[in-house]
């Protein structure tokens, strides 16, 4: 794992670094407030780059995934 950097604001704080422990490099994202970690591979990152703003906006809706009555976690 290379050095990570913090991308933070008054609303969220995420540690960002490139992880090199797998068979290829991947982005390691850690939500500093909960400790939850997600890895993103290159194809997933490229997909994010191309995500239209409207689509991204829908993902930011609090009830889209994280704060739903039927959310599993």
């Amino acid at each position: 794992m290379n050095e990570s950097e913090i991308v933070g604001s008054e609303f969220a704080e995420v540690a960002v670094g490139v992880d090199t422990t797998a068979n290829g490099p991947r982005l390691r994202l850690e939500d500093r407030r909960t400790g939850r970690v997600r890895f993103l591979d290159a194809l997933e990152l490229e997909t994010l780059v191309w995500l239209p703003d409207g689509h991204l906006g829908r993902l930011l809706d609090p009830s889209a995934d994280r704060w739903r009555e039927d959310a599993g976690h």
């Binding site: 797998a22 068979n23 991947r26 194809l43």
Partner: peptide, 18 residues
């Protein structure tokens, strides 16, 4: 094509099927 790597999905270079 690569002998190894890390990717959760694979995209064919010919027509982009994923």
């Amino acid at each position: 094509d690569a002998p190894s790597g890390n990717s959760n999905s694979f995209r064919c270079p010919y027509h982009g099927w994923t």
